[in-house]
Amino acid sequence: MLQHIAHRLLISIPVLIGVLLVGFLLLQVVPTDPATVVAGPTATHVEIEAIREAMGLNEPIYVQFGIYLTRVLQGDLGRSMISNSPVVTELANTVGPTIELMLASLIWAVPLGIVLGTLAAVRRGRMSDRIIMAVSVAGVSMPIFWFGLMLIQYVGFHWQLFPFQGRGGPLWTLSGLDHIVLPALTLGGVFIGPVARMTRTSLLEVLGSDFVRTARAKGVSERRVVVSHALRNSLIPVVTLIGLQIGFLLGGAVVTETLFAWPGVGRLAVGAITSADYALAQGAILVLALSFLLVNLLVDVLYAVLDPRVRAR
């Protein structure tokens, strides 16, 4: 088990360096001089040059990459060009809301997707299967912003059931819960289709296997066969696939946050890019990429925990 985790950590290192290199290069190619930004608008040429020297911007590019790595490892991602506050502080304030939104979406969409996928597999070929699968394909084809816009228009505006702008505070407060409903419905809504589809495929495969036939032959009830024998085994690949779809969820989160003015990393990144705040944009993209790597790593480990065969490989 430990060996498996160590192996996975080792192969993440080159990817990690690649991500950091891309983050570094992002700042190299943009048409802004970091020294000028740090010095401020009233700085003289001599002052800018001194800052440039102090920041190591006159060094060869590989040395600069080394300096950049050291700074990132120390948690220094520079300063936002607009608010002039440290990028790390800005990011620290937004990571929480993004994680909150993603969890709030997963918590209802994954169980519902699994239930729908199971229903479709058990009633394979029947009307309910066809309807569930048609809805699932439609869900995969749905622009997430349209789903969100419809929720805002009807649930938020016409029926006035839930607020649709911003975050209302921590989740344990009523206002916090109220505000997260529509964003979480939007983001989770597009996730049901893929989960249902994966569960159905995986369950169909397991339902055709020998141990299911044995269970049926010894007279186990159909409900028990599906729930305790087949579903448990089919969930292993589903867990991995859900993990792989976290990237898809992250993409959806960027759009959802922008749509609902949710103060997360995605909205921060989009805002930074459109206002040409390069240091902040780079920091936000870096955090998104790194958290994605981390989730992949966790899913891999979880997979090994769930399925002993992976460890033996």
């Binding site: 990237g247 930074a272 994605f292």
Partner: peptide, 18 residues
């Protein structure tokens, strides 16, 4: 393949502008 496509969009828009 392991990175969400939206990150490419964000990164490239950051460099080349929207």
């Amino acid at each position: 393949l392991s990175f969400p496509s939206i990150l490419f969009g964000l990164a490239i828009a950051a460099v080349l502008g929207a």
